[in-house]
Design a protein around this nucleic acid. Sequence first.
DNA 1: CTCTGATTTGACCAAATAGTCAAGAATTCG
DNA 2: CGAATTCTTGACTATTTGGTCAAATCAGAG
Lengths: 219, 219
Amino acid sequence: MDGNVEDRGGSFTNHRQPTRIQAINREIILDAALEVFAVHGFRGSTVDQIAAKAEMSKPNLLYYFRRKQDIYRAVLEHTLADWLAPLAAIDPKGDPVEELRRYITLKLDMSAKRPAASRLFANEVLAGAPVIGDFLKTRLRELVQEKAGVIRRWVSEGRLAPVDPVHLIFMIWAATQHYADFDVQVRAVLGPQVDRPGFREQTAQAVLSIVLNGIRPRG
Amino acid sequence: MDGNVEDRGGSFTNHRQPTRIQAINREIILDAALEVFAVHGFRGSTVDQIAAKAEMSKPNLLYYFRRKQDIYRAVLEHTLADWLAPLAAIDPKGDPVEELRRYITLKLDMSAKRPAASRLFANEVLAGAPVIGDFLKTRLRELVQEKAGVIRRWVSEGRLAPVDPVHLIFMIWAATQHYADFDVQVRAVLGPQVDRPGFREQTAQAVLSIVLNGIRPRG
DNA sequence: CTCTGATTTGACCAAATAGTCAAGAATTCG
DNA sequence: CGAATTCTTGACTATTTGGTCAAATCAGAG
């Protein structure tokens, strides 16, 4: 009994058409829960924190999601698709460098626009992925293998330098999510320039330059 | 009152020479606490978990560290120096590519040998760096600026391709720590090959190849 | 408007958790 | 050895936390 989240159990098994109020309030709760879980993880977050952030009494919140687990699962599901979309969008028929440039740019945009989503996953994975573990081993794995195949083909056609495709994907994830997950560290090192308008473009430029060209001086 | 850890307070303000038993038990506690905090973060970890992992009664553990905060701070301090050492070791007089190759290799070794340390920091930073925030804004920042200066000089001498040095450092952190922090995800995607003897070398090869040469096919 | 079901919440409970304390056990040192 | 000190722990307390419940309020269909 680890206090973990591994057991199953859906929220609102009642599958009737949600009322207007239900739709609104579930959305409010999911937004609030995302912010809280993203900072403290499942174990470190409390229902009271979420209720406070949602400006709702705790029993009212638990009227919509019976258990803390149910909120957590719902937030994760609610976010997974968006998180995966950019990778799924890599087009085997496109230009390799352009496709990867677009992928990196999309991931950096996500990190900037939805940092809490990235941090939520970071916390979940750090905790051992008790909830999304199955997802990682099935759907994510399949998607990565598929796209790795695409990249491998590009390499064999000489359209990319020889590179391990899965490690390349990991590296892009790491580099892009870093700016969301470690935002506090980035700010500590770089200071307020992080909020200047051009910062995102500068970051994209730097990441793209390294991934595409490397740092070894060219002939 | 956020339940956070921001307030000050040392452990064992008693600064006498530690006894043999003290030295042993503090070490046992710090090892156990590292494992626990690395998975669940400060808020999500309990003193009982740490005591159980240390095979020690809770009051006995609290005899060595009066408060949960004190354990947490001690573990962080205990780990910070090691975490920083590889960056500090970058030698301005060395060969740029060799120095960065060594840095990346050292960081990957740390991720493989001490993954819990990396995860501890990841959790701390995700939670907003309540404890090491000051450290990040002072010592880490200074060190990064110093090494960024070194890299900038290398670039201006044409010994590295033009690259933003701070983003390069971030990218190396991200790519290397990814293998510790997201180990579960890496395993989900790659399967048991992660435990095969050559995996570390293969990873190092892939990361180095991308960072040094990029993925754009060379002329 | 009126009735019904949906929504909201104050009061509450049981379990988990951080931390205390006094007394007993072990260790150290003269 | 024997006294002083350090170490260990069972039993305990106060607080936090996840979750329940019955009663009150509200929204919407007819």
